[in-house]
Amino acid sequence: MEVLAKNKISWDISDKIGYLSFIDSPENRMDSAFFDELHDLTSKVIPGSKPSAIIISGSGRHFSAGADLDDLMRMIKDEQKEEGSDTLLSNYQAFKFFQELNTPVIAAINGVCIGSALELAMHCHFRLCSEGAILGLPESTFGLIPGVGGIPRLMELAGKAKTIELVLRGNTVNTNDALKWNIVDAIYPKRALISKAEQLAKLASINYRKYMKTDYLKILKTI
């Protein structure tokens, strides 16, 4: 077992499964230090350690409350580039890394998962959540938009009508609505979340992408 823990994220491989955990609880904020660590992990550490599956989760009560707005605004102010923000583009590259991996990436969502945290989760291949989880994209309530791939991912998952509603209202949704709208794949009791994610990781890491996503989820229901 190898454990790499900095201030914001820990990376641990056990039984070939890579565990990426946010360790700045309770909020697990995705500030610039968080993204520095994430870039380091996605560019060097994770490709080098060749996990057979990855489980992303938040330590403590929440997955993550998303970007640190003050921090982000400060960086954008420093950049003030007409052509768009380099910070957002490089953050997106880190999210896209997980989406394009050929090993299954599973978001195990407990508690709050809003803003950029949901954007990251939507770039994972599976989203399992625990009862009572809260999801949302509140950016528009601050006069902003989800800028790290949240809109195109939500369009794919939930369709146009729900994307407009969720993004413009900026309200949070509960797990039942998230499941109904195809934003999450399954809901489990809190205590079962990680073990279900581990079962799925083992199941999906064999012949990954040989089956439809829904097939894995069906099997997962039976075990």
């Binding site: 954008i76 007409e82 052509e83 768009g84 923000s85 957002l88 583009l89 997106y92 902003l144 938009i145 989800p146 800028g147 790290v148 791939g149 809109i151 195109p152």
Partner: peptide, 8 residues
């Protein structure tokens, strides 16, 4: 994504 970053 570039366009979204610019809008943001």
């Amino acid at each position: 994504i570039k366009e979204d970053a610019k809008l943001f």
